[in-house]
């Protein structure tokens, strides 16, 4: 460093002595994208699993009409889109954060000038991009293979609702990621997310589920997440405002749990 920068820097000089945040964020997003893309645990699971499941549980019903006169193929496509976005969030953050903790990547990152907010923002942006891609792949597959045609405006509406409503699932993912170890995390996310998805009617119509599940379902975050998406194709069973209220409540609860788990971990590692 030049002798000029020795001594106490003036406030104006201090301001330019950090890297510009947009550049940091952009580079962080690019790296996170590469990391996720190169890990089949994330990329293959996030993009292909919804397609596989939809082939079994969705495609056979393409062309049928529901009791309310809706295209069942479109309704199920919406259900599996909700499943896909939720999976990107819960698995991505749940397993991703647990792995980073296990490999102590968080320790080195914490010692760099990278602001934690930028680190977090990059993760959320990349998850959103993956979710968008997952929905795109699913809709394309449904259109090409199943002949399920959806107007672009509907696609945009469903996708926007799913991304905006995913905050509680991001919270759930983070909470699991900070509590579970790297080996336990994959099991925990499956044990938590799959029953939630099933009970909320993402894999089969809610009416076909056991009675006790139907009684519990309206209290689950994924149930209202599904309702939010279904209402975009006329299949919702509750007003959008009700879905949003439930999701906001769950977002607050799960983000609080995530922050608590994070603080406990930070106190142990960096206190």
């Amino acid at each position: 460093m030049s002798a000029v920068s020795a001594g106490a820097p003036a406030p104006a000089a201090a301001a330019v002595m950090v890297a510009p945040l947009p550049r940091v964020l952009l580079t962080q997003v690019r790296s996170e994208l590469l990391m996720r893309w190169r890990l089949p645990t994330f990329s293959a699971t996030n993009l292909l699993l919804p397609v596989v499941l939809f082939s079994f549980f969705g495609l056979p019903f393409a062309g049928r009409t529901t009791s309310r006169g809706l295209d069942l193929g479109v309704v199920l496509l919406t259900s599996f889109s909700a499943y896909a976005v939720g999976q990107v969030m819960v698995y991505g953050f749940g397993i991703g954060v647990a792995i980073e903790r296990g490999q102590r990547i968080d320790v080195l990152m914490r010692a760099t000038p990278l602001p934690p907010g930028v680190y977090l923002a990059a993760k959320v942006i990349v998850a959103m991009l993956f979710a968008l891609l997952a929905v795109l792949v699913l809709f394309t597959y449904a259109g090409v293979v199943g002949g399920i045609r959806v107007p672009p405006a509907t696609w945009v509406s469903v996708t926007a609702r799913l991304l905006a409503g995913s905050v509680p699932l991001i919270g759930l993912g983070f909470a699991i990621g900070y509590v579970a170890g790297p080996n336990a995390a994959p099991a925990v996310v499956n044990l938590v997310y799959l029953p939630l998805a099933f009970a909320s009617g993402l894999f089969m119509p809610p009416e076909q589920l056991p009675a006790f599940v139907q009684r519990v379902a309206p209290y689950l975050p994924t149930y209202h997440y599904a309702q939010l998406a279904w209402s975009a194709v006329g299949a919702g069973r509750e007003p959008v405002a009700t879905s949003l209220a439930w999701l906001a409540g769950y977002a607050a609860l799960l983000l609080w749990a995530a922050v608590r788990a994070y603080r406990r971990e930070a106190e142990r590692k960096f206190g």
């Binding site: 980073e100 490999q103 102590r104 080195l108 010692a111 000038p113």
Partner: peptide, 13 residues
Amino acid sequence: SRTGVMLQESGVP
């Protein structure tokens, strides 16, 4: 921003 670090027992992706 003026500091470089090499730590024991830390990981990278």
